[in-house]
Write a protein that binds this DNA or RNA. Structure first.
Lengths: 249, 249
DNA sequence: ATAAAATATGCCGTTTTGTGCATTTTTAAA
DNA sequence: TTTAAAAATGCACAAAACGGCATATTTTAT
């Protein structure tokens, strides 16, 4: 076995389990513990992993490659993003919210589409930098650690100064009678500002969230112009939304 | 057997099994190990495969999980970041610039340090979200695709409204008589705003950049309060900077 | 067609690298 | 603090890489 393969195997193991024991690796690869120790030492020097007493751990989720974290219900979200991307035309000025569904939309923007895109999500902005024809404008503000988005008065104020054609937003909870609701009050303030900054608001939402609600209200359901789920529009789960003046994709 | 077909055979083997041993190939093709070694060396130079001790491996084999784009002179930059981080105290309000050196500084901020940190670099902001005690504020603006930072009037205006204790900046070029210079005019405007927004400016700079210059000027060298390179302060390469009123770490 | 030049190949001695083992030092957990 | 596991260190051996050289093959120029 080549040294390179061995090191690659070690990296894979670390990626997969986030941590490994040197003794385990040595046994599965059938080489001496010294060799593994040296390998891990090298990999550490190359900043491919971090060596700790007795083993090695992954450098973690801090690396800017956003894809490696497992996204819940990714297939559904991709389907939603595909539908959403059909709304985009050259010259559009849009806003893309945070959240994994919106991130998928950002990822799915065609390479040749020439649009201007506002966002307050760091991952979305990172993703959009790879699209050469997209003008990206980041709404600054204090960064929320868990959601990785700008929040706070500054962000809201900045939003008040723009008006986009479409804003693509996610939501924590949605219900046909109670509208869009969130767990977090700050987020609600932000989303209100986003909706106000858009001519038309498009809600991206997996069907699992339908008919759920929480404490703080973002807006009534008819503040939404278009709603996109992974379901076909004629699905009966969407019936309660059809009474309102919402386009369903 | 022609050299061409031999090399093609090697490539096929590598494609097929992701790896190959020089001794195996030499035996199956019935040529000397030296010849194979030379072949593989050539193929490596042509980026058709990667030569490793004892064999060769497919290019695709490593790239899939080697997420980190290799940073040039990473060790030097880590050393610089380490020195820079000693300037940080609880309660500090700082600015961190873009660039790989500054990104290393962001990565190196201790977990228990409680500071407020402004930045206009997406990667830096992403990195900082993993530090639970750091308040991160992103300066919004249009995002430059290649540098992954906010640029333009909006970013500059936002910078004009803050004043931080320290700003840690990089530079394209630095010279003791010509000061800090850049290739890009927009970047210069931005850096000027950054320097104006800081009580003290700390320059992070690998020694390789010393005594280099370019078209557009960011500031005189004595606009810099502290300069950090990977070299020990007494290194003679830094002599020309010691005349000026600069602290060298 | 022939000589000269360039390239390719194999061989050999030296240097470098990779690996395992034994011993000492360090580390982390009870 | 004690103690067992892990890391570092030094060493030995084998495999591989390297450089120089001789020979063979192909290409080029005359």
């Amino acid at each position: 076995m080549l040294k390179e393969e061995r090191q690659q195997t070690i990296l894979n193991e670390v990626e997969l389990h986030n941590r490994v024991l040197l003794t385990d690796i040595a046994e599965t690869l059938d080489v001496s513990i010294d060799t593994i120790r040296r390998d891990v030492k090298e990999l550490d020097a190359e900043h491919k992993l971090r060596k700790v007493h007795g083993g090695a751990i992954s450098l973690g989720f801090t690396t800017n490659s956003t894809r490696n974290t497992n996204i819940y219900a990714l297939d559904e979200k991709i389907k939603i993003a595909e539908k959403a991307s059909t709304l985009l035309k050259d010259g559009s000025v849009i806003f893309i919210d945070g959240g994994t569904t919106c991130l998928e939309l950002a990822r799915m923007i065609p390479e040749n589409l020439e649009i201007t895109c506002f966002t307050l999500s760091l991952p979305v902005a990172m993703q959009l930098t790879s699209k050469s024809k997209v003008t990206v404008i980041f709404i600054g503000g204090q960064i929320s650690k868990d959601a990785q988005i700008s929040i706070g008065a500054n962000a809201i104020h900045n939003l008040s100064e723009i008006k986009v054609d479409y804003s693509f937003i996610g939501t924590g909870y949605v219900d046909s009678t109670y509208g869009l609701t969130e767990f977090d009050w700050d987020i609600v303030q932000l989303k209100k500002a986003v909706i106000k900054a858009a001519k038309k608001t498009v809600l991206l939402c997996i069907s699992e969230k339908l008919n759920s609600q929480h404490r703080y209200k973002t807006c009534d359901i008819n503040a939404i112009n278009t709603m996109i789920t992974e379901l076909p529009p004629e699905n009966q789960l969407l019936n309660s939304f059809k009474n309102h003046d919402i386009r369903i994709l």
